[in-house]
Design a binder for these strands. Structure first.
Lengths: 249, 249
DNA sequence: CCACACATAATCAAATTCAATCATTTTCAA
DNA sequence: TTGAAAATGATTGAATTTGATTATGTGTGG
């Protein structure tokens, strides 16, 4: 496993769980504690996470100490994902019926949303909480809650979705490729994405550059089915497509 | 569990309950009193909460009074609620289909649940999160999320419930009276409670002594419709009823 | 006033975590 | 292929955290 890859995995876990211990990372990534510690030290000095005794916590999750406003967080993490999220949030108009997928990128999107006069529907517990705390009209799909991502998936959720229609929607993805479309590792999540996209008029996929030319096991949509919002494109191959929006801050 | 995580949990509890005792934190977080005391001392000096004899209070409540006496704390009923929750958790058997209502008492119940071989259904985002983090099979009702309680209510949620049947269920209440039954202030929440109780075989209402002889605007069930689990009964009037279980620790 | 239960801070031993170090393996370029 | 640089995993002693214990302090109810 490449170091970069491992760092990505660590950050993903820290973002999702808000806090992870060294032994946990050790088991999930299959490397020694020494390596994990070194990774955490480096990621900490890069400002990507906060190293604490026993493990690490995510930047946003300052349990103690002053809580950071969104802008401060933005400054700390002048991250590609955050630029994408900010841009996407502006696409929401008054009166919209907005579907928001589960995932870390869409979570950032939720943080950036300011449109009060829209209705929000999501299958993510985290996103629903954030939305309702911001005072937005929020709906959650019903069904089985999946442990790892804290999102609702499965037959009931699918049935619930089929009754709704959205004017605009935002999804995350694990891989994007012109040939295989948008892909994700989990069958159930793929189903949720596929159905919700089917019910939506304006479809946007949020993804950072690292997802390009990656193919995960399950395809949930074809490449032409949505507009891709991403940071600076590094792969020339994708320059020619019209449904890619490059956010340049 | 990381120290930071524990601090987060403590602060969340203190914020919500306004006052928590050391033994309660001990039980809910599964660490020793020594550790809790150390945590409180540190959080106190960080200015995140006020340490008082017996536990801690939230910052906001500080000006109201000097230290809370144990009586005052008992009035807040956290300890009693905890005892009730622990007792109720033992009622769940393998294979049960368990409905869990939204609310602070049922939240404590969730903290106490140990039965892995059951399926849990709730309309509370908080409870769903907790359940799924404990590794239990968890379902959430779909529908509109209400801001104040972070629970799902409304027509969709009701429709979702109607399709299900539960072997056992637990509800909170704002008032209990032999004449007016179980009552709550909110119309929508009452509807959720009423419907879910209709789909459940064994019905339990969790409530501390302060709820007796209180009547809120909306009745969601008659007094005979459920077994009441409570702490020590102070009101002699209720001694004669057979559907009241007194948990004496 | 006293006795009782409980809460507290201090102390200690055990367990866990840490940074530093070193040998081994891998990577990359000459 | 060879050698230098980087990454990894194991080891070690120091530091931190934790839970139990104990002596002391605080509040309650007779």
């Amino acid at each position: 496993m490449l170091t970069e890859e491992r760092w990505g995995a660590i950050l993903e876990l820290v973002e999702r769980e808000k806090a992870v211990s060294v032994p946990e990372l050790e088991k999930r990534l299959g490397v020694s504690a020494s390596t994990i510690r070194r990774d955490l030290t480096q990621l900490n000095s890069l400002g990507k996470l906060i190293k604490v005794h026993g493990g690490a916590t995510s930047i946003g999750t300052q349990y103690v100490g002053k809580d950071l406003t969104m802008d401060e967080k933005y400054l700390m993490n002048s991250d590609e994902k955050m630029d994408i999220a900010r841009y996407a949030a502006e696409l929401i108009s008054p009166g919209d019926y907005v579907y928001i997928d589960a995932g870390t990128t869409t979570e950032m999107l939720v943080d950036c949303i300011r449109e009060q006069n829209a209705t929000y529907i999501t299958n993510s517990l985290t996103n629903a909480r954030k939305l309702v705390r911001k005072g937005f009209k929020t709906f959650l799909t019903g069904g089985e809650v999946k442990g790892t991502t804290e999102a609702v998936v499965g037959a009931e959720a699918a049935e619930y979705l089929r009754k709704l229609h959205f004017t605009i929607g935002f999804w995350g993805t694990n891989g994007v490729s012109a040939e295989d479309g948008f892909t994700t590792p989990d069958q159930n999540e793929a189903m949720m994405k596929r159905i919700s996209m089917g019910q939506t008029t304006k479809r946007y996929i949020l993804c950072d550059r690292s997802k390009f030319s990656v193919v995960s096991p399950v395809t949930f949509a074809d490449f032409e089915d949505a507009v891709v919002i991403t940071g600076k494109l590094t792969d020339k191959k994708y320059k020619k497509y019209e449904n890619i929006m490059e956010v340049t801050k």
